[in-house]
């Protein structure tokens, strides 16, 4: 479904990705782990075309994601849903308008009443009441904003969903709720999911497969069941949160 080969990206003299090879099968949930600033977000943004890689190929459903422009790119992006770290809700719009953003625009747009109904249905799916639909995003708590972001990401039942640090900034209980929701929704929609996180609870909850990104390359990739038994020193250090190992900890 998604295949990256040799993807490299540098910002000025800072090399962030140095040849990432990664593939995600249809219906699979892949979680990318790695420390802060190791290029996890850059990887996702390269797939979405928000950042153009310096080298390498990215295929989505066999289509070249980097070369796609204009209409072809919009058609490709129609397959995607994305939950941003901070929610990235449009603060000039009501909650339901945020959720229905895509339903109100584009080729197969719905009428406002119909779009609103769908939006409320999606809000209920993520555990929010119909009353929240008419609030502004700024009136919601962080956890509720994440839920709205999730509802927006799944509003058009996309084939591929990206989650950028879905539990960052949430309390442990809310984080657990969001993890469960992500797992349920991905399974129920049969979607292909790619998540980036450094929260190990989240990894164990939502991953089928795990990939460890460090120093711009994938150091290890394997089934989630193997993260505790693998001999890979990077994964071992990261999963167990050890101060000593190949990953230098800056104090």
């Amino acid at each position: 479904m998604i295949a990256l080969s040799g993807v490299a990206k540098a910002f000025g003299s800072k090399r962030v990705l140095a040849g990432v090879d990664l593939s995600v099968a249809r219906g699979e949930s892949l979680v990318i782990i790695g420390g802060s600033g190791t290029g996890k977000s850059v990887t996702l943004k390269c797939v979405l075309g928000l950042i153009v890689p310096d080298a390498g190929r990215i295929l989505v459903d066999g289509q070249d994601a980097v070369a796609a422009r204009g209409r072809a790119r919009e058609a490709m992006l129609d397959k995607f849903g994305m939950l941003f770290q901070g929610g990235a809700l449009f603060d000039s719009m009501l909650v339901w308008e945020n959720v229905a953003f895509r339903l109100l625009r584009g080729q197969n747009r719905l009428g406002r009443a119909e779009a609103r109904e769908t939006a409320i249905e999606k809000l209920k799916r993520v555990g929010l009441t119909a009353e929240t639909a008419d609030l502004f995003p700024a009136e919601l708590s962080g956890g509720m904003q994440k839920r709205v972001g999730l509802a927006r990401a799944i509003a058009t039942t996309p084939e591929i969903i990206f989650f950028d640090e879905p539990t960052t900034g949430l309390d442990p209980i809310m984080a657990d709720v969001i993890n469960d929701l992500i797992r349920e929704i991905v399974v129920e929609m049969g979607a292909t999911a790619m998540t980036i996180t450094h929260d190990m609870t989240s990894v164990r909850k939502i991953a089928d497969r795990v990939a460890m990104l460090h120093e711009g390359v994938i150091q290890w990739a394997g089934p989630v069941g193997e993260i505790d038994t693998t001999e890979n020193p990077y994964v071992h250090q990261f999963v167990n949160g050890l101060p000593d190992g190949p990953i230098a900890a800056v104090r």
Binding site: L48, L77, D78, F84, A88, F101, R102, R105, G106, F162
Partner: peptide, 9 residues
């Protein structure tokens, strides 16, 4: 939010 617009086609 600008990135989010892209992802919403």
């Amino acid at each position: 939010q600008i990135d989010a617009l892209w992802t919403l086609s």
